[in-house]
C-alpha cells in the first residue's frame, strides 16, 4: 500500500495544551495517491494534528516529513507553497472579498486564471463570481473553501469534515471531485464523522484516541478492531 516513499510521515508528534495532551506520541504515514480517513472520538486530536501539519501550531516534540523533507516548524505559508492544502471544520472564507478574489488569492497572483473559472464552474458558483463570499449559503461557502485550497495546486490535501452540513446532492458531487482529483495523483487525508463517507471512500483508515493512534487498516479491519470499539463505545 505504501510501497513508494510516503508523501507524509508523522513521527511521534506531541502537543499539550496546559495539562491536556492533545497529541501524545502519535505517528503514521500516508502514501502517495492514497485517500486516508482519519477518525476518532471528539477530542482525540484529529484537528490538532492537522494544525501541526500545516504549521499553525508548533509541536512540542516529534517530526513531520513531506516527501521526505522535514517541514516541522516551517511557517504556514511556506508549507502551503510546498503543496499541502487544508480546509477547516468551520468554514473560513474571506467574507468581504468576491468569489473570484477568494479563489485567485492562493495562486500568488491577482489575475484570475482559467483554473479559477473552471473550478467555480465545477461547483456551480461561476454566476456569482463577482459577489462577496459573505452572501453565499453555508454549503456554498464550504464548496468555495475547498476549491480555494485546490488553487494551491496541492498534492496533499487535508479535509476537516468536508461532508458536514452539506446536502446529499452536494455531498455526492464533493466525493466525485475528491475521486477525480485522486485520479490525478493527489493524496487525501480526511477527517470525517460520517462513517458511510469514510467506509465507502477511504482505502485506509487511521484511528486516533486520546492523542494516540490506536488502529490503522482497511475500513473493514478498523470496524472490527477491539480498541476502536472501546474508544467509541467504551464497551
Amino acid at each position: 500500500m505504501t510501497a513508494d516513499r510516503p508523501i507524509l510521515e508523522i513521527h511521534d508528534v506531541r502537543k499539550s495544551f496546559g495539562g491536556v495532551h492533545a497529541l501524545a506520541g502519535c505517528g503514521f504515514s500516508v502514501g502517495e495517491g492514497e485517500i486516508v480517513g482519519l477518525i476518532g472520538p471528539n477530542g482525540s486530536g484529529k484537528t490538532t494534528l492537522f494544525n501541526t501539519i500545516v504549521g499553525y501550531l508548533p509541536l512540542d516534540d516529534g517530526r513531520i516529513l513531506y516527501r521526505g523533507e522535514n517541514v516541522t516548524g516551517l511557517p504556514p505559508y511556506q508549507i502551503a507553497r510546498k503543496g499541502i492544502g487544508r480546509t477547516f471544520q468551520v468554514t473560513r472564507i474571506f467574507p468581504k472579498m468576491t468569489l473570484l478574489e477568494n479563489v485567485t488569492l492562493p495562486t500568488g497572483s491577482a489575475d484570475a486564471n482559467d483554473r479559477a473559472y473552471e473550478l467555480l464552474e465545477l461547483v456551480g458558483l461561476a454566476d456569482l463570481q463577482d459577489e462577496y463570499a459573505s452572501d453565499l449559503s453555508f454549503g456554498q461557502q464550504r464548496l468555495l473553501s475547498i476549491i480555494q485550497v485546490l488553487m494551491l495546486d496541492p498534492w496533499l490535501i487535508l479535509l476537516d469534515e468536508p461532508a458536514a452540513g452539506v446536502n446529499p446532492v452536494m455531498q455526492k458531487k464533493l466525493l466525485e471531485l475528491i475521486h477525480y482529483l485522486n485520479e490525478e495523483g493527489r493524496t487525501f487525508l480526511i477527517i470525517e464523522h460520517n462513517m458511510d463517507v469514510v467506509m465507502n471512500n477511504c482505502e485506509r483508515v487511521v484511528v486516533l484516541s486520546m492523542g494516540e493512534k490506536i488502529a490503522e487498516g482497511s475500513p473493514d479491519e478498523v470496524r472490527r478492531d477491539e480498541a476502536v470499539l472501546t474508544a467509541y463505545f467504551g464497551a
Partner: peptide, 8 residues
C-alpha cells in the same frame, strides 16, 4: 491565519 494557510 486562513490567508497564511493559503500561501500568503
Amino acid at each position: 491565519s486562513a490567508a497564511s494557510g493559503l500561501a500568503v
